[in-house]
Amino acid sequence: MSDLPRTQAEFENQSYLSHLVELRRRLVRSAVAVIIAFIGLVYWAPLIFRLLARPLMQNFPEGGKLIVTDVTGSFFVPMKVTMLVAFLIALPFVLYEIWAFIAPGLYRSEKSWVGPLIGMSYALFLCGMAFAYFLVFPTIFRVMAHYNAPLGAEMTTDIDKFLGFAMTMFVAFGVTFEVPIVVVMLVHAGVVSVAKLRQIRPYVIVGAFVIAAAVTPPDVLSQLILAVPLILLYEAGLIAARLMTASAPRDTPAHFDME
Score class of each variant (00 low, 15 high):
W99F: 14
A103M: 03
F209E: 11
V171N: 01
E154W: 04
E259A: 12
L243N: 09
P218T: 08
V184F: 04
E235W: 03
T216F: 06
R242H: 08
L117M: 15
P253V: 08
E62A: 13
L224C: 09
Y107R: 12
V204A: 06
M167R: 08
D257S: 10
A208W: 02
I231F: 10
V32R: 07
F170E: 09
Q8G: 05
S247Q: 12
M155A: 10
H146V: 13
Q223Y: 09
V85R: 01
I231L: 10
P138V: 13
G63A: 07
G128I: 05
S121N: 11
G128L: 06
A153Q: 08
L41R: 08
V204C: 03
A130G: 08
E12K: 10
L221P: 02
R108K: 13
P61K: 12
L230M: 15
L124Y: 09
A212W: 00
C127T: 06
T139W: 01
I200T: 07
A214S: 14
T168G: 12
A189M: 14
H146P: 04
L233C: 05
F101M: 06
G64T: 03
V215P: 08
F76N: 08
A254G: 11
N59T: 02
T245F: 04
M144S: 07
E12L: 14
L151R: 07
V94A: 10
E12F: 11
A9L: 13
F131V: 06
A103G: 02
L186Q: 04
V143I: 12
R26A: 02
R108I: 04
I181D: 09
I239C: 05
M57V: 11
V204D: 00
V220R: 03
P217R: 04
P180D: 03
V220F: 13
W99V: 08
N148Y: 14
A130E: 07
K111T: 08
V77H: 05
I35C: 13
V183D: 01
L243E: 11
F131I: 05
L117E: 02
L243A: 14
P116H: 04
P46S: 01
P104A: 14
I39L: 15
A254T: 12
L226T: 11
I67W: 08
P46L: 05
V42S: 12
Y122R: 04
V220E: 08
P104Y: 04
E154T: 13
E97L: 09
L51D: 05
Q8M: 15
V81Q: 00
F49C: 03
A213D: 08
V28D: 11
I98H: 09
G128S: 09
P61H: 10
S15M: 13
V182A: 14
D219K: 00
L52M: 12
L4P: 01
L117Q: 03
L106I: 09
L163D: 01
M185W: 03
V182E: 05
F177L: 02
V215N: 10
A90D: 09
K111L: 15
R25G: 15
A123F: 15
I231S: 05
I89E: 01
T157F: 07
R201L: 11
F87I: 04
I98F: 15
Y107F: 15
P92T: 06
Q14P: 06
E12C: 06
R29M: 02
F75Q: 09
F93G: 02
F87N: 08
Y147N: 00
E178R: 03
D158L: 02
Y43H: 12
A90Q: 10
V182M: 11
V81R: 00
F125I: 14
P218S: 06
R29P: 00
T252I: 13
